[in-house]
Design a protein around this nucleic acid. Structure first.
Length: 315
DNA sequence: AATTACGTCAACCGCAGAAGC
DNA sequence: TGCTTCTGCGGTTGACGTAAT
C-alpha cells in the first residue's frame, strides 16, 4: 500500500475561492507554514483538495505577490528569459520573485506574444523594405545571418552565465532597483480580495464621528494593513481550539479595526429594502463586519458552515 | 439597449518526478 | 521493490468584463 489519499474527492469544492476560505487558508499557513498541503483540508475544514489549496496560496495569497501591470523592466526580463529558457515559467518566475509563474504565463500568452508578433511583423516589413526584398521571402544575406547568429549566441552565453551565478544577480536584473521592493503582505492580498468581493454588495456609510482607531474599509485602509505582516497574527490553532474573537482577529489580520457598526440610517435603509443605500461616504460591508456587528465569537465550524446562500438577506 | 466578439486571468487538468508506505 | 500519492509544472479552459456593432 502507498500513502493514504490526500483528500476525499467527493464533496470537494471547485471554482472561485471565497474570502472566508482565503482567511482560513492564510490562518493555517501562518501557523504551520506552507507545505504539507494534504493536511490543509482536514485541519482547516476547507472543502478543497490539497492541490487547490497550494495553488491558491502560491498564486494569490502568498506574501510578496505583486499584481497588476508589469513594468517595462519586468517585460524585458520576461522576453529575455523566455528566449533563453523557453516556456519554463517557474524558472522565469524565480527571477521575478514578486510575480507568480501563472501570472507570467498569462501575461506572456495574452500580451507579450501578440506584442512580439507585431514587432516582428513590423521589423520584417522594414527590413524587407530596406533590403529591397519581398515580404514573403524573409531572406537575408549569409553575412547578416551569421552576424545575427553570433550576437544571439553571445547574448545567450551572457544570460546563461548570469543565470548560473549563485552569488550575483543576472546583469539584466541590475537595471532594477538595487534591492527588491518591500513585498505586499498576504493580508493585503486578502483585504484587496474582500474589497473586490464586496463590490457588488450593499455598502454602508462611514461614521463621521468615528474614532481615530476606526478606519474605514476603503483603499487607504487597504494600504494601511501592509505593516501588519507577520505580527500580531492570530494562530490557526487558537482559532480552532478556542474560537475566534473576530474583533481581535480582524485587527490582527488586517492591521486595523473594523469600522463602527452602529448606524441607524443604514439599518433603516436595509429594512426598507434598498439594495444600495445612498448615504454619502460609503464603504463596503464584509462578512466579518457582520460577524463583528453580532459581537460574534465563533469557532472553526461556524466559519466553515457559514453559507451566504442560507443568509441571503444579510448582504 | 441588445447582441456579439474579444481580452483577461483564476482555476483546473494532466503529466512527470519525487517521496512515502 | 513496487505501488500509490504528493508536489510542482505547463497547458488549457471557461467565467467574466469590456469594446464593438
Amino acid at each position: 500500500m502507498g500513502r493514504p489519499p490526500c483528500c476525499d474527492k467527493i464533496g470537494v469544492k471547485k471554482g472561485p475561492w471565497t474570502p472566508e476560505e482565503d482567511i482560513m487558508l492564510v490562518s493555517y499557513v501562518q501557523e504551520h507554514g506552507p507545505g504539507n498541503w494534504r493536511a490543509v483540508p482536514t485541519s482547516t475544514g476547507l472543502r478543497r483538495c490539497s492541490k487547490s489549496c497550494r495553488l491558491r496560496w502560491t498564486n494569490y495569497l502568498r506574501p510578496g505577490i505583486r499584481r497588476g501591470d508589469f513594468t517595462d523592466d519586468e517585460e524585458k526580463m520576461i522576453i529575455q528569459l523566455q528566449a533563453l529558457l523557453g516556456n519554463k515559467w517557474a524558472a522565469i518566475a524565480s527571477y521575478l520573485p514578486e510575480r507568480t509563474d501563472n501570472d507570467i504565463k498569462n501575461y506572456w500568452n495574452t500580451h507579450l506574444k501578440k506584442k512580439l508578433r507585431k514587432l516582428q511583423a513590423g521589423s520584417d516589413h522594414f527590413r524587407c523594405k530596406d533590403e529591397g526584398l519581398s515580404s514573403s521571402s524573409h531572406s537575408i544575406s549569409r553575412g547578416q545571418w551569421e552576424r545575427r547568429l553570433q550576437t544571439d549566441i553571445h547574448m545567450a552565453k551572457q544570460a546563461l552565465t548570469d543565470a548560473l551565478s549563485l552569488d550575483e544577480k543576472p546583469s539584466f536584473l541590475n537595471t532594477q532597483a538595487a534591492s527588491y521592493p518591500t513585498y505586499a503582505s498576504s493580508t493585503e492580498n486578502i483585504a484587496r480580495l474582500l474589497k473586490g468581493w464586496t463590490k457588488n454588495a450593499p455598502t454602508k456609510p462611514v461614521q463621521a464621528n468615528s474614532s481615530s482607531t476606526q478606519h474605514s474599509f476603503n483603499n487607504n485602509a487597504m494600504t494601511d494593513c501592509t505593516s501588519s505582516e507577520g505580527t500580531n497574527t492570530p494562530t490557526a490553532e487558537s482559532n480552532v481550539n478556542s474560537g475566534i474573537d473576530l474583533s481581535e482577529a480582524f485587527e490582527s489580520l488586517f492591521g486595523f479595526e473594523s469600522f463602527d457598526s452602529s448606524n441607524s440610517d443604514f439599518e433603516a435603509s436595509l429594512v426598507q429594502g434598498e439594495s444600495k443605500p445612498n448615504l454619502g461616504s460609503q464603504v463596503p460591508i464584509t462578512m466579518l463586519d457582520w460577524l463583528l456587528d453580532e459581537g460574534a465569537v465563533l469557532g472553526k465550524e461556524d466559519l466553515t458552515n457559514f453559507s451566504f446562500d442560507e443568509n441571503p438577506d444579510l448582504f
